[in-house]
Amino acid sequence: MRTGVYPGTFDPITLGHMDIIRRAAHLVDRLVIGVTTNPSKTPMFTVEERLEMVRRETAELPGDIRIVSFDSLLMDFAEREGASMIVRGLRAVADFEYEYQMAGMNQQLNADIETVFLMADVSLQPIASRLVKEIAIYGGDVSRFVTPAVAVEIRDRVDRIGRRGTGGQTV
């Protein structure tokens, strides 16, 4: 059984993430979506909220898709899941430089697990969770970047934490 791991913070899950998930699910027998934390990012949603969000958004997709959280080295997580590949989405050249370096480091940790890069659909390439959150915090419409249910969750969260005026800190 070929198992692939698609790791990310998914804070929030975007249409770009969904595109990569749909396509990756066709490449493997089982796709494990690993929801993690990133110390360099400030999350809008808790890990539990993000897990639920990803579960809901992927529930109707075909294939064997599991959603789990992890807080370890990616390669340790991939080994635990029995993965033969790590799936990474690319939007732009800047993504490639970072991802290329990470793939090289991961290969040093375990050469038996390949990293596979999938280019995001052209119409979805500009979408980044960080930018979606920033647009929402400043009162913008994020409905073109996320599903309707996720857009509602973002609006509710922003309403709870309060929108920032110009010059305020962003998430």
Rank of each mutant, 00 (worst) to 15 (best):
A59D: 15
K41Y: 09
A59K: 15
R22D: 10
V32K: 03
I21Q: 02
F10M: 11
Y6K: 00
R56I: 12
E49G: 03
T36N: 14
M44I: 07
R2T: 15
P7G: 05
P43V: 09
G4D: 00
G8A: 07
R50M: 05
L31D: 01
F10Y: 14
G4S: 01
K41N: 09
L15S: 12
M44T: 05
D19E: 12
I20T: 07
K41D: 08
R2C: 12
K41Q: 10
E57C: 08
E60Q: 15
P12R: 12
M44D: 02
E57L: 06
D19H: 08
Y6R: 01
I20Y: 07
T3K: 06
F10C: 09
R22H: 13
T9A: 11
T14Q: 10
L51E: 04
V32F: 08
V47C: 11
T14Y: 10
E52S: 09
R22G: 11
T3R: 06
E52M: 05
H26C: 14
V54R: 03
G8T: 00
D29N: 12
G16Y: 01
D11C: 07
D11G: 05
G4Y: 00
V47R: 06
V32I: 11
P12Y: 09
Y6S: 00
S40R: 15
R23K: 13
S40Q: 15
D11Y: 02
E60A: 15
V28K: 00
